[in-house]
């Protein structure tokens, strides 16, 4: 049981750390990293739960994680593009979110 629960639970922990960072950290780049942690955590939950007790893995969650990775990469690119533009308008604004 333990080995099956370990990965999904670790995923939940990583997700929680990411959410915590998103709420508490003012620096925008730190927030982007925190957002990436949430994405990684969610993926880990998906893949972790794909393990079958009788051995082998379920391919469907893996396909979902692939899509999820593509989405997370595009989202990160958008966030970085917005932050880069912000830093050109007001360089100080990147260090605090309000």
């Amino acid at each position: 049981m333990t080995s099956f629960a370990l990965y999904p639970l670790a995923g939940v922990v990583v997700l929680t750390i990411g959410l915590w960072g998103l709420v508490t950290r003012p620096h925008l780049l730190t927030k982007v990293l925190a957002f990436n942690l949430t994405a990684t955590g969610a993926s880990l939950v998906l893949v972790g739960l794909a393990a079958r007790p009788e051995g082998g893995t379920d391919p469907v969650p893996q396909a979902m994680v692939l899509t999820g990775i593509v989405v997370a990469v595009s989202a990160t690119a958008l966030a970085l593009a917005l932050i880069a533009r912000l830093s050109r308008v007001d360089p100080g604004a990147v260090e605090s979110s309000d």
């Binding site: 990411g18 998103l22 979110s97």
Partner: peptide, 17 residues
């Protein structure tokens, strides 16, 4: 830009949850 970035983080966190 500030509003868009704020919206991005709220939206991104919501998606992952």
């Amino acid at each position: 830009l500030r509003a868009a970035i704020r919206y991005f983080f709220a939206n991104g966190a919501a998606s992952m949850v």
